[in-house]
């Protein structure tokens, strides 16, 4: 499903050269619930950005659904993201002027889905993440956990093959964080969507079924976990 082959990402700031990812190889299969962990600066965000087709790499090749991403144009990558990838962000990134419903449905608008199906799908999705009845609320009228639920609904509503989440619980207290992780896991199990999320929180790692540890841009461990 996702395959990194000797991928490197090099940042060059004037004189200093930082190898944020250093010939990383990794293979992720469909339906995995994978956490990328590591200390600050180890390259977690860089790796998620690459898999999310938001950034380009300097060496190696990345395959998603067996498609090589390296040679894609910006436009193709945009289209690819639209169709296949979902994102959850640390700070939710909801549009403050739109309601919960609109924040989710807008993803489907981008896919030019017909109005009636958008409505059905969105309402169903929102109730699935436990927000039934709150569709009309604006982000400011929702708690942090509820906002992140909206974000999860937004990431999942278009039924992407992969959802990428960069530190999804970092802004939440631990109890809410756990609720969110439980929700993500439920979705993973129910829908078979691949989840790749980063964290440096040991509690969060507990939830992962596979844990990839990064250090200085290299994979230092990769273990399957029972749950």
């Amino acid at each position: 499903m996702v395959r990194l082959e000797d991928v490197s990402r090099i940042y060059q700031n004037g004189q200093s050269v930082v190898k944020a990812l250093d010939r990383v190889s990794l293979s992720v299969s469909g339906g995995e619930f994978l956490s990328i962990a590591g200390p600050s600066g180890s390259g977690k965000t860089t790796m998620l950005n690459l898999i999310g087709c938001l950034d380009t790499f300097d060496e190696g090749e990345l395959y998603i659904n067996e498609r090589p991403i390296g040679g894609m144009t910006n436009k193709e990558r945009t289209a690819f993201r639209r169709r296949h990838l979902g994102f959850i962000f640390q700070s939710y990134n909801l549009i403050p002027v739109l309601t919960a419903y609109e924040n989710v449905s807008f993803v489907l608008e981008l896919l030019d889905m017909e109005e009636k199906r958008i409505k059905e799908t969105t309402l169903h999705m929102l109730s699935e993440v436990g927000l039934a009845g709150l569709e009309g609320r604006r982000p400011a009228e929702l708690s942090g956990g509820q906002q992140q639920r909206v974000a999860i609904a937004r990431a999942l509503v278009k039924e992407p093959s992969i959802v990428l989440a960069d530190e999804p619980t970092a802004n939440l207290d631990s109890k809410t964080g756990e609720e969110i992780l439980t929700l993500m896991k439920t979705m993973n199990e129910r829908r078979g969507t691949t989840f790749i999320f980063s964290t440096h929180d040991a509690m969060v790692m507990e939830y992962a079924r596979r844990l990839v540890l990064l250090h200085d841009g290299r994979v230092v461990s990769d273990e399957q976990r029972g749950s």
Binding site: T78, R81, R82, L85, F87, N93, I95, V107, R154
Partner: peptide
Amino acid sequence: GGEIAMMRAMGMEERR
């Protein structure tokens, strides 16, 4: 800026 980046990440075309 963040919102715009989010929309772009979601695959919203430049045209739109």
